[in-house]
Amino acid sequence: MDKTQNQAYEEFIKGIWRENPVFVQVLGMCPMLAVTNSAINAFAMGGATFFVLVGSSFLVASFKNLIRKQVRISSFIIIIATFVTVADYTLEALVPTVHKELGAFIPLIVANCMILGRQEAFASKNTISMAVMDAIGMAAGFMLALLTLGSVREILGNGSLFGVDLFGPDFEPWIIMILPPGGFLTLGLILLVFNWFTVKKAQFIDKVAAAERSSS
């Protein structure tokens, strides 16, 4: 029992940092850049993706013995498209303003390669509970990335966060940040920082290993 719990925790935590879908695997870039011009849009997008990913992982894992290998991609896509349709209509009914701002990008969750990738690489080969844990972890990692990018771009480009003014009227907003180029540049810089951390960590581990070798 303890072992499966550990494993479930492991599946969950890997999505957030070590195998983060955006920073490490570079998947799901399109919604990542397109909707992150404000933190609130990023949050709505993250929520919708969370719902779709967890729902379709659950269904794919439950049906994995019924789906034949040759038609698996089409079956996954149809399952995903069903969940996206549900999410689309739900958002339209609950928060029409956000839905309008996200525009075509809610339906485009269907084409988010991260979701299809998780079904193919994980949910179709594992038990239901593991698949759901993996989906929650990946979706949380995606949400983390969306919020990071959305906050940076909104703070710099608009001087606010979640619509709350931060710097007062004297702040000159960097308009470029909420325009398309800002998305590319910000994500590029965030990836640089991420790379830097990874390299530093690898060097640190090497150094510790070398010190252990020389002392023994």
Binding site: V26, L179, P181, L189, L191
Partner: peptide, 21 residues
């Protein structure tokens, strides 16, 4: 070496995107 890969491509894309604006 640190910049090589996706980070550099994204920054190039950002500059291209600025040009297209």
């Amino acid at each position: 070496a640190l910049i090589k890969g996706t980070a550099m491509n994204l920054i190039i894309a950002g500059i291209l995107s600025m040009a297209f604006m």
